[in-house]
Design a protein around this nucleic acid. Structure first.
Lengths: 220, 220, 220, 220
DNA sequence: GATGAATGAGCGTTCATTCAT
DNA sequence: TATGAATGAACGCTCATTCAT
């Protein structure tokens, strides 16, 4: 029993160290992908920054692509935890959508610009697997928004004119998020303060949604 | 004189052949960048598809990056010729902007999906030179749209609430173009018919613009 | 403790293997540069002869130029260890210089013709970095000889007529070494036996030195 | 007859133009080989500087190597015309050899540093054909000097101790020429004024020669 | 688990040379 | 003769990945 406890402790410690290593490597990759770009970053550079050997990187991740995919998964999870949640909380108004917008521009863009860069820049135009993964995540987020739109329309007593209208709105909203962040964060290099810009963008997208909400009428 | 004419003719023919070769190579690059991605395309593949030697590719273009930059220039020119023009024609209403939207979704997306892919996907996250070039072109297009917004607001007697509002609108609009095209063309692989989707997107963005147009009041 | 020793041993062995590999590659480069010339030798040929992969060559050396520079460093070190030392031992006569000459012609030319070829032939007219390196080494050797001349003149009670005389003598002596070796070893392909030729050359250069040693007189 | 004269004139003109073109190209090659090095110079650069097309270069010269070989021939001819001649004029003293030295250091080094660079630097360590050519020319020059030494010894009533002594002297003298020029012109970048340096070098080599001249005695 | 030396396919690029005009 | 576009073999070099220790 005593023996077991000792083993258990060391096992726990090893488990913790494993997790730490994993994180160290992933953070190193994130930093370098953000700063130098995915293709311009080599595994050796990642292992150097993470202070492990190349072999260790390959112990924790299948290959370079796998690192990017794990980052995408993580980013997608973070995004949906913080922002997608708000979309789901949409009640009888568009407040949830506005709240989501505020969270994105005021908080997410400020705290995680490197994550946005990886999602919107570094994972674009890479291997088909990465692309698929990225599109999957985008689809989920779009789905979140689409759900919010449908629910809001329903609760607020509106119809949507076309078959794809909710999807179009969702794609437009995520597109606005993406383009505003990319333009002001990466092209114009505003250091994270997207508050006023974000407010305008939210006003814009709310106007856009309302313009597609049509009074309910008897369906054929 | 006859001699001169002959020389002239052969010179003209040679000139035409040069232009044709140049185009053949550029089209081959476009096709492959679109189909396989920029990094996944090698110069040898381009020269094979263009049915010239590797050396010939390097005779017409400085290097691989140069091919992409020439494509971007071409695409930007085409885009601004076809669509940017409409933005500039904005008069006393938002009709010009709507017209631009129709042209983009009905025509540009149908005729030149590969050009959109190169602008929105393959040129993203590449070398800094390419990125700069891409950002330059985007900035010009955003400038076109911004100009249209400012003019429309002025002519229609509206104010824009914030300092960056026109820019935010412009970025949002181009972001919607980008995201709708990418989502429906590349993720969902609709073969070019973006008519109904485009209509909704245009309704959306018009609503967005109007929501940021505020009645003019005396400025402090 | 046993464990530590084992680790230590394997570490030592690995270290030794590393050193061996390094030497194998450098020797392969030396052989090929000598036999075929620097430009006519490709990295693949070097890696083939060294029985390693191309990548391994690049693991040990930065690039092709680096190989040549390491060879030059090595040769320079060897030369100065064996021959430069004698120049420094110059006492009250020219015996040290004669000794250096014997060592060069009887020993160095016999044992290391390929090193002479690399120093005097293959490293000439290459990249500016290589040239600089070569000139640096030559300058050091010339400096060694110059020092010997100055010391001998001083000890033997002679003046040197001009400001640059010692340098001229030094350059002439190294030039004689170079030209005799190149002519008889590479042009006439005498297989290393430069004894009699060397004796004459030494007599020649001693005569040259003495002809520039002038009796000391009160300087103005 | 009139016709013939016209043809003749134009033929002469054409002949003259041909010769001019040939010279223009050769001079361009010389300049570039000197300034950038043989390997760092491309045919295109030569044709650009000569203001002709690449094809024209190939009309006048078989290939790139051929350009270098023609330059070597030319330089060798020039050298032997100016300096070798003096060696041949050696009479009953070493004055001819001294005269040759003055001509080399005072005149040749000042007027034609680029030619020396091509002979002593750019043509070293190239293809075997070039090397052979260079060695041939060197051999001729060495032969000139050797002849002068033999004649001077004879006329002055001296013997030479060894079988190769005259050759050793000749090789040493040319080696001194080479090394002094290379060191002061190319390494230390003295702009051509090698007068005082040359005087010392000549004193040196005269001393060297005399030290190998032994009083004639009955041979065994 | 961790290491890092070794691999080698594959890349972008150069440039001497040719030849139809 | 003169042109210069076209060729393609050959190069130096990179880097994701493997595996013996």
């Amino acid at each position: 029993m005593g023996n077991q406890k000792v083993l258990s402790r060391s096992a726990i410690r090893r488990q913790r160290e494993r997790e730490e290593r994993y994180q160290t490597i992933l953070r190193a990759a994130e930093t370098l992908f953000y700063e130098k770009g995915y293709h311009q970053t080599s595994i050796t550079q990642i292992s150097d920054l993470a202070e492990v050997s190349v072999g260790t990187v390959y112990f924790y991740f299948k290959n370079k692509e796998d690192l990017l995919i794990h980052l995408l998964d993580e980013i997608s999870f973070l995004f949906r935890s913080r922002i997608g949640k708000e979309f789901k909380n949409t009640g009888e108004s568009l407040d949830g959508i506005m709240k989501a917008g505020y969270l994105f521009f005021d908080e997410f863009c400020r705290l995680f610009p490197e994550k946005l860069a990886i999602m919107y820049r570094e994972s674009v135009g890479q291997s088909s697997l990465v692309n698929e993964c990225r599109m999957n995540h985008q689809a989920k987020i779009i789905g979140d928004v689409e759900g919010a739109i449908l629910q809001a329309a329903e609760k607020m007593g509106f119809d949507l004119p076309g078959q794809d209208t909710a999807e179009v709105i969702a794609v437009s909203i995520t597109g606005i998020f993406d383009s505003i962040a990319s333009h002001f964060l990466f092209s114009k290099k505003r250091s994270g303060d997207l508050k006023s810009v974000g407010d305008d963008a939210i006003t814009f997208l709310i106007g856009g949604i309302k313009n597609l909400f049509v009074p309910k009428k008897a369906k054929i």
